[in-house]
Write a protein that binds this DNA or RNA. Structure first.
Length: 294
DNA sequence: AAGAACTCCTGTTGGC
DNA sequence: TGCCAACAGGAGTTCT
């Protein structure tokens, strides 16, 4: 699925078409995605002006004039596409998307004032859309437990060391835990750990020293987390099998992967000579270099 | 209570 | 070529 850089790219791509525009028409083509759509979903969106579109963790938050917020998550395979004003919405059953997808999985179609059509497509349906009152957003079940934004000032070595203190789970699992850092996913955790030269297998607790203070490796890791995310956003995210930005642009950060998907290839670190390995942690692939990631 | 396993769903890929 | 198992960017729920 889209991780933070991809969701950020989607957010930036959708914003010009959504913000300050009104949702003229809503087509909800099935009763549920991962979760059932909210009660009266179509009615609560129809006629609403969009006042803001933001990203929090891997969520898109679309603020409506009514005071409600449309909370959207792309799951593993969710994707938005935009058809600019002037073209007709595709009918269910039509095979080809303008951008190459399959309209069989177009689940929500929003028509905006001016005619732009925003389509949510999600073959696996791990994504979802919910509505919450803006004032209660922070208390929302899904928002309440989220950890810090990795690109914000709240992610410091001190914070991360304290959050990981005493944890016996792997560093990989801890970094994927959205309650600690919100927005990291499988790819960027692998890449950040590689950049920092840390093994995904080490215990998360080894980021903390005496009294939960950060150790040197923590001080090295935090800037690499931020750097890899910034680099990926700069590149428009990563395009694997089914992610692309709303206007069909392909991200190109996948060409910059140092370890992800590179099992068996030689480590690129100067003078290392190791071979990238794939292991499974928590049922998910981890790629790393056993030679230089300790 | 932390940590790991299981679950949802469809599509693609690689090995035989 | 066909068939089938493994795997895919997530994360809530259920176990141990």
């Amino acid at each position: 699925m889209p991780e933070l850089p991809e969701v950020e790219t989607v957010c930036r791509g959708l914003a010009p078409f959504l913000v300050d525009a009104t949702i003229e028409h809503v087509e909800q083509r099935r009763p549920d995605l991962r979760f059932p759509f909210p009660e009266r979903f179509v009615d609560r969106l129809k006629g609403q002006r969009v006042t803001a579109l933001e990203r929090r963790a891997k969520y898109l938050l679309c603020s409506l004039q009514s005071g409600e917020v449309l909370i959207m998550h792309l799951g593993m395979s969710g994707r938005f596409t935009i058809r600019p004003a002037g073209s007709n919405a595709m009918q269910p059953g039509e095979f080809l998307h303008e951008t190459g997808g399959n309209a069989a999985h177009d689940h929500v179609v929003l028509t905006m004032t001016g005619g732009a059509v925003v389509t949510y497509n999600d073959p696996r349906r791990f994504g979802f859309m919910l509505l919450a009152e803006a004032g209660k957003l922070e208390d929302h079940k899904l928002m309440r437990g989220l950890g810090v934004e990795p690109l914000g000032e709240a992610l410091t070595d001190t914070y991360l060391a304290q959050a990981c203190q005493g944890k016996k789970t792997s560093l990989k699992a801890a970094l994927l835990d959205q309650r600690i850092i919100a927005g990291l996913g499988n790819i960027y955790v692998c890449e950040a750990l590689y950049r920092a030269g840390l093994s995904p297998r080490r215990a998360a607790g080894t980021l903390a020293g005496r009294g939960g203070k950060p150790v040197k490796r923590t001080t090295q890791l935090v800037p690499e987390i931020k750097a890899v995310l910034e680099d990926a956003i700069e590149a428009g995210g990563s395009t694997l099998r089914d992610y692309q930005a709303p206007q069909g642009d392909l991200g190109y950060f996948q060409h910059s992967f140092a370890v992800y998907g590179r099992e068996g290839l030689e480590c690129q670190r100067e003078g290392c000579g190791g071979t990238i390995r794939r292991i499974v942690q928590g049922g998910r692939s981890t790629f790393y270099c056993p030679a230089c990631q300790r």
